[in-house]
Amino acid sequence: MVLNGIKAIIFDLDNTLIDTAGASKQAIEEVMKILIDKEQYTEKDAHIICDRFQAKLLHENLDHSKMTIDDLRILHWEEALQSIRPGDHKEVAKVCYTLWKTSRLELMTLSESIKNMLIELRKQARLALLTNGERQVQREKIEACGASHFFDAIVVGGEHAEEKPAPSIFLHCCNLLAVKPEECVMVGDNLDTDIRGGLNAGLKATVWLNKNSSFSSNPYIVPHYTINSVVDLPDVLKNLK
C-alpha cells in the first residue's frame, strides 16, 4: 500500500479502536446482577441506581487536591445508592465501583484485525494515539488494551492544558511524530472533537468513523472521508488525494 503524502496518522481511542460504550454497558449489567441478587434491590431500582451513576460520569469535576478519580467514582455510586435507600452504603459503593471498573477494563481490547491494521500502517507511517479524558482513567484503558505496543506517541488530553478539539494538541502530536500537519491524517468517531480538531489544525485529511451510518449531528463539521469500520481505513488511505 502506498500512502500518498501521508507520513503520520493520529487515532482516537474510545469507540474508535476499542468499544468503550459496549464495555461500559456490559460492566453496568454485571453491577445490576449484584444489586438485584445480593443487595436485594428491585430491577427497577437497580436500573435507576446505575443510570444515576452513569449520569454523574458525564458531569465529573475532579479536584485532584481533594480526592482521586477512584474516590470520586465510589462517591458517585454511594450517592446513587442513597437516592434509593438512605443510609451508609460506602462498602456496597466500593464493591459496585470495583466490579464496574474491573469488568469494563477487561472488555477493552484491540481486535486482531485492528492490531494487524496498525502493524501494517506503521510500516509506512508514524502513528499517534490521541485521547481525551482524565489521566488515570485513560492510561488504565491504554494499558488494558495494550495499545502502547502499536504507537510511536501516546497523548492523553487530561495531561495537557487543552484537549481535543483544540488545535494545539493536534499540533503537539505532529511535533512528537516529527511531521507537518499537512502530512497527517486524523481518525476518530467524534465529529465535535476528533474531526473538528483535525480540520482546525490543518491536517491533510480527517476520517470519521460512523459505525451506525447516522447523519452528521453537526452540518458545519464535514469530514474529508467517512467509514463504517476502522479497518476500512487502509482503503481510504490508498485513494486519498
Rank of each mutant, 00 (worst) to 15 (best):
D45R: 07
Q40W: 03
T193D: 13
R122C: 09
N190L: 12
C50I: 06
A144Q: 10
E106W: 06
D63T: 06
D70A: 14
T102K: 15
I48Y: 08
K44N: 12
F53I: 09
D37G: 10
Q136M: 13
D12G: 07
I9G: 02
D88A: 11
A93L: 06
V156N: 02
M67C: 14
A166H: 08
S103K: 10
N190D: 15
N200T: 12
K7W: 08
Q54R: 15
T206G: 02
L35A: 09
N228M: 08
S148I: 05
S103V: 07
G5H: 02
F170Y: 09
I6Y: 05
T68R: 13
D71H: 14
D88I: 10
D63P: 04
D14H: 06
I34E: 14
V207N: 00
R85L: 11
T98W: 08
H89A: 09
Y41K: 06
F150G: 08
A23F: 08
I48N: 10
A80N: 07
M186I: 12
E112Q: 09
S83W: 09
G5R: 01
A93T: 05
S214Y: 08
L118K: 02
S217A: 13
K66Y: 07
I9A: 00
N4D: 02
H64M: 12
Y97I: 03
I221Y: 07
G188E: 00
Q26E: 14
G22Q: 04
Q54C: 09
D12H: 05
F215N: 14
H47F: 11
R122E: 11
F53D: 00
R135Y: 12
T68L: 15
T42F: 05
I10N: 01
L233Y: 03
V185P: 01
W77M: 15
H59Y: 08
L75I: 12
L107M: 13
A147G: 07
K241G: 12
H76G: 13
T206I: 04
Q124A: 11
I10F: 02
E159L: 08
L107Q: 10
S111K: 02
S83D: 15
G202L: 06
M117H: 03
V92R: 05
K141Y: 03
S24Q: 10
V185F: 03
K115N: 06
C174K: 00
G22C: 04
I49Q: 04
K204M: 04
K115L: 01
V231W: 08
I114D: 01
E106R: 14
R85C: 13
K141W: 06
D192P: 03
V222M: 08
L62H: 05
D235A: 15
K90L: 13
L99N: 08
T68D: 14
E183G: 02
L110M: 00
W77P: 06
N15P: 02
N200D: 15
